[in-house]
Design a protein around this nucleic acid. Structure first.
Lengths: 351, 351
DNA sequence: CTGTTAGCGCCTTCAC
DNA sequence: GTGAAGGCGCTAACAG
């Protein structure tokens, strides 16, 4: 395995061709595993390429083939654990197939007054797009001008293939767990700020929560449902707000809380601790995600396979790019969530 | 602002040229803000381009200019908070300058028996590389074949420009804070697994810690320094190990701990809680980073400006790419860490 | 100030 | 099974 190229000039396909004593066309064919090249020639070329340390220019290749060998990740931002975990899952798959991953964080553009994302020309950069909780503001016209296959992870867009966890089941499992423990007044902290992102996630989880309550014959109290988004701070604020509504009497709080994400749950735990509310004795809390750090809080949560969603979505996207439709079935793959019981849930205090 | 292009065929530079009644070359010049185009013509072209929804093909442009307008991020992995925060900081800067960000996680290749990273051809994909805690295994020959400007963040490579926090000062501030509180036996949990990554980070922080102890005339006890890496689990394990060494007698533990990262500190806090060791009454803990979630643990920590490091590094890299050397001075920018006192540190128990 | 002429490096018809 | 020619879409160097 020779690993040096002392050649000063950049090595292109012609250099390899010269060394191997064949034409550039043959080099191209040989190196890409295209049939119609004798085994002997192929090996000869491969050796020459290796000796020279040749790697085809992605730009030139892209220009000639009309393919970029890159896929883009569209996400509101990336510093939330969920997104990076999905990206890692996707990365493995696309890398193995020779694709690069481009980051397109929407940043400020994910907010309520987001500009319609300019996706024109995106298809010139990437062969496909992975949309992580793509905001509603993207849908109207921009998606049409995207002109590249799109697969979503998390929040779903009608008519667009995607991967997500069964969010209604998520909400159901969380609420059901609390009901089974004996709770009868359960809050849901986690509706989306009005149309902020257009996530279907929060709404679906709320729906599942409502179903569990209904099944158990429990009433739903409007004040027990809060709009939070997914951030830690929102969880803190929501518990404070609940306290305020309860006239600062902890005993008047719901006895249990379903948080839309582990981050929100962490915020709730934090606020509870600082208010002297004991978890789980005074208040039970369930999160969602099984965040990498959730075990540090002994947080009971409804886990979802995050990296796996990224991997599956990437696979679907690559298949789409290759013309293979999403493997004959539903366009949206639903994964199963699973309850992870730790220590932030317990039966309610006896009155 | 017309925003539709009903034209079926893809619009290229010639279409725009035709509509504007000029040559492709003029379109190219006008759209890229190159001087030597009359204001009238420029506006004409811009209007035509807008009407057609034209965006130049990055590949074609790259091929013609010999520039990719992309920069690569080389990192062990991305799901650690530090890395994503750095990336976000960098993203803003590069995006504003029209560059894309490519992800090159080293993945399994970051481990002790990592393959020398294959960076040949990387320069064909990107104009520059941002190295986040690039492992030692990359240094030998691979860096030479990189053939593209490199700027590091975090761990430094001799002779390579970079941005990092003053890690010795980090270690010093953490230890000094504990000393000032009255602690006399302070552990350091955080040396790197032997040469695993070749980070300079851990070593430097340890050096600062030693200096603070020496200044205070305190002895350093070898058993009080542990190899952990940067992960949560390592923090848990390290405290368990400390307990084992102390024959499971909490009173025989050091009274304070400097953890190399907030994640390690979180692990320590978790283990302490489960062992009934009270923080900060029985044990003080200081972390490093000021992680987004560290306030949830009331964690005292030595904060560093993470996103800012990403932004500065990106700026340096772009300057390097543009031929402007790193603005006349040290090749490595040192940022100041700052102690953030919360509630995991207190004076030691009186004997 | 603007147009014309050559490529950038590779891939893909077509011939052989 | 292999080679020769043309072009992917844009930009840079030279004219004018």
């Amino acid at each position: 395995m020779t690993d040096t190229d002392a050649s000063p000039g950049p090595v292109g396909i012609v250099e390899v061709a010269a060394l191997a004593g064949v034409s550039p066309a043959t080099v191209s064919r040989a190196l890409r595993g295209i049939p119609g090249v004798s085994t002997a020639t192929r090996q000869l070329v491969q050796k020459a390429a290796a000796d020279l340390g040749y790697v085809a220019s992605p730009q030139a290749s892209a220009l000639a083939r009309g393919r970029t060998s890159a896929i883009g990740v569209l996400a509101p931002w990336i510093s939330r654990w969920f997104f990076t975990a999905v990206i890692e899952g996707a990365q493995d798959v696309v890398t193995a197939r020779g694709y690069d991953l481009l980051l397109y964080p929407l940043g400020a553009n994910a907010g309520p007054d987001a500009q319609p994302v300019d996706t024109r020309g995106l298809h010139k950069r990437v062969d496909g797009v992975l949309g992580l909780n793509v905001p509603v503001t993207m849908r109207p016209a921009t998606l049409k001008t995207l002109a590249a296959p799109l697969v979503t992870v998390g929040s779903t867009i009608p008519g667009v293939p995607g991967v997500r966890v069964d969010d209604q089941l998520v909400g159901y499992l969380a609420a059901r767990h609390l009901i089974d423990l004996g709770h009868r007044r359960i809050a849901f902290l986690g509706l989306d700020p009005d149309d902020m992102y257009g996530f279907t996630v929060a709404r679906d989880r709320h729906t599942g929560y409502c179903r569990a309550l209904a099944e158990a014959g429990l009433p739903t109290h409007p004040a027990d449902v809060e709009i939070t988004g997914f951030a830690v701070e929102a969880g803190e604020a929501a518990l404070e707000h609940q306290l305020a509504i309860a006239d600062w009497d902890p005993a008047a709080l719901p006895t249990a809380i379903v948080a839309v994400s582990d981050e929100v749950a962490m915020g709730v735990l934090y606020a509870a601790r600082h208010r002297g509310i004991r978890v789980p004795q005074d208040l039970s809390v369930v999160g969602v995600d099984n965040h990498d750090l959730s075990h540090l809080f002994d947080l009971t949560t409804v886990g979802q396979p995050v990296r796996q969603q990224g991997a599956i979505a990437a696979q679907m996207l690559l298949d789409l790019i290759d013309g293979r439709g999403v493997g004959g079935g539903e366009p949206v793959r639903l994964l199963e969530p699973g309850l992870v019981v730790r220590n932030t849930t317990a039966p309610p205090r006896a009155h």
